[in-house]
Simulated assay, not measured.
Amino acid sequence: MSVHIEAKKGDIAETILLPGDPLRAKWIAETYLENPFCFNKVRNMFGYTGTYQGKPVSVMGTGMGVPSISIYAHELITDYNVKNLIRVGSAGSYQEHIKIRDIVLAMAASSNSGLNELRFNGADYAPTANFELFQKAVDAAKSKNIPIKAGNVFTSDEFYADDFESYKKWSKFGVLCVEMESAGLYTIAAKHNVKALSVLTISDSLVTGKRTSAKERETTFNNMIKIALSLA
């Protein structure tokens, strides 16, 4: 048992899917895993382990933001020996050609979070995906005929920015979308020499204003789950 996870040793698989929403974790476990059992209810951050195509897989919510996912990633790695951490989350499109429900693989994560600035004494650190997981995800998407986009994403500490138009600066430099966790996940994974990848579904667009409902975000983003489970 760690500070925020009540699982026993051996309850959590080496590969874990990490949605921000704990209810999405519950839905993934009940929809895709065989014989899932709940290993965590602390703070209602539900976590489950089962099997997928005969392989043990876990799934657990992380909450919103870099600090929250950093806590859970740290404990999963150091206390439970997790080796592959795959974020399955929603994101807001920064580009006109990236539409609602498109899948984005985060190759790197720019950020306005101050955590790495503190960690590296004011120097810039560029958090990136693990290449092996990234390549496997690309291959899995091709085999399942799931179109994907890949590139730089923006991890923001703000959900409601004071200047809505500020996203256009990131868009101009090719950033594909905004979310709130990948930079933290990639940094913690790199620190502990394990693998991480964010597989994102576009839930809304800052360009067009279109958006999905909370229920749709919780239960209908199937393609990213299929890609993520292929990495187990």
Rank of each mutant, 00 (worst) to 15 (best):
A91M: 06
S68T: 06
A106H: 08
T219Y: 02
D162N: 14
M64T: 04
A25D: 05
F37Y: 15
M1V: 13
I71L: 11
K9M: 06
V3W: 11
L229T: 10
V199F: 00
T49Y: 10
D124F: 15
F164M: 07
N40K: 12
N223A: 12
F159L: 12
W170Y: 15
L18T: 10
G20A: 04
K168S: 05
G63I: 07
A129K: 03
T62H: 00
D139E: 14
G114F: 12
I148E: 01
N121M: 09
G50D: 09
E96Q: 15
Y160P: 01
K99M: 04
G89M: 06
V42T: 11
I98L: 12
P22G: 05
G114S: 12
K191T: 13
S58I: 03
V175C: 13
F221M: 15
C38H: 07
A161V: 05
A29E: 06
F37M: 10
K9L: 10
N121Q: 13
I28R: 02
E132G: 01
N152I: 14
I71E: 03
R119C: 05
D102G: 09
E34F: 08
E179N: 09
T155C: 14
T201V: 14
P19A: 04
L118M: 13
S68D: 02
P147H: 02
A189C: 15
A7S: 11
G209K: 13
F39W: 12
L229S: 10
A189W: 03
L18Y: 02
V175W: 02
K8C: 07
P22E: 06
P147S: 05
N35R: 13
G151L: 12
E75V: 07
I202Y: 03
T128A: 14
K99A: 11
N44E: 15
E96H: 08
S58M: 07
T15E: 01
T212G: 01
P147A: 04
I227Y: 00
E158I: 03
N116C: 09
H4S: 06
H4T: 04
K26R: 14
W27F: 15
D204G: 07
F37S: 11
A91K: 01
G122W: 09
L115Y: 14
N222V: 13
G47H: 11
K99S: 05
I28L: 09
N145T: 09
A25K: 05
V138I: 15
V153R: 06
E96G: 00
A190Y: 09
N121V: 06
I71C: 07
R119L: 13
T155V: 11
F164N: 08
L76T: 02
A140G: 04
S182C: 14
A91E: 02
T49W: 11
P22D: 07
G151C: 12
D163L: 03
T201W: 00
I12P: 00
F131C: 01
K168C: 01
R211K: 15
S93G: 08
D204R: 06
V42N: 08
T220Q: 10
F120K: 08
K8G: 10
K172V: 01
A190N: 13
D157S: 14
I16N: 01
L17Y: 03
V153E: 00
E14P: 01
K83I: 00
S90N: 07
R24E: 02
V199A: 02
E117I: 13
V199P: 01
A190E: 14
S70H: 04
D79P: 00
S213Q: 02
